[in-house]
């Protein structure tokens, strides 16, 4: 059943983005920024955790989960270390994704040549 939920959630998020893309002049950059902020706001009210339980990896994949992980790590550290934890825990959970993206794109850039 979780496969159906993953299909529905990931599909609907992509569909909303495509509807915005087709009907406005916003670029993909605008939409990914907007979706990250939506992910943050959903996590403030603990909604995103419920979506994660419901849709599994279907909710991990969209860019909204990036915002969710940012504020989630931040709040985790804030409960342990107080106010300063908001800053120190910011990249706690997203560090793996960002690091791998930077390292992989650096080394692969050295290997591949641009096509045009």
């Amino acid at each position: 059943m979780i496969y159906v939920n993953a299909f529905l959630f990931c599909g609907i998020v992509c569909l909303i983005a495509q509807i915005i893309l087709d009907n406005t002049t916003l670029t993909p950059g605008h939409i990914t920024s907007l979706f990250v902020i939506i992910g943050v706001i959903l996590d403030v009210f603990n909604i995103y955790d419920k979506i994660l339980l419901w849709a599994g990896a279907g909710a991990i994949l969209p860019i909204t989960s990036f915002g969710h992980l940012l504020i989630h790590g931040s709040m985790d550290f804030a409960s342990d270390y107080g106010f300063i934890g908001l800053a120190t825990g910011m990249f706690n959970l997203t560090a793996a994704g960002i690091s791998i993206a930077i390292v992989a794109s650096f080394f692969l850039t050295l290997i591949f040549k641009p096509k045009d």
């Binding site: 299909f7 959630f9 990931c10 599909g11 983005a17 990896a57 279907g58």
Partner: peptide, 18 residues
């Protein structure tokens, strides 16, 4: 566009879950 994106996005989610 919408139909293609919905199905392809859904398949991405299912692949991630698998």
């Amino acid at each position: 566009n919408g139909i293609i994106v919905f199905i392809a996005g859904g398949i991405m989610g299912v692949l991630a879950q698998i």
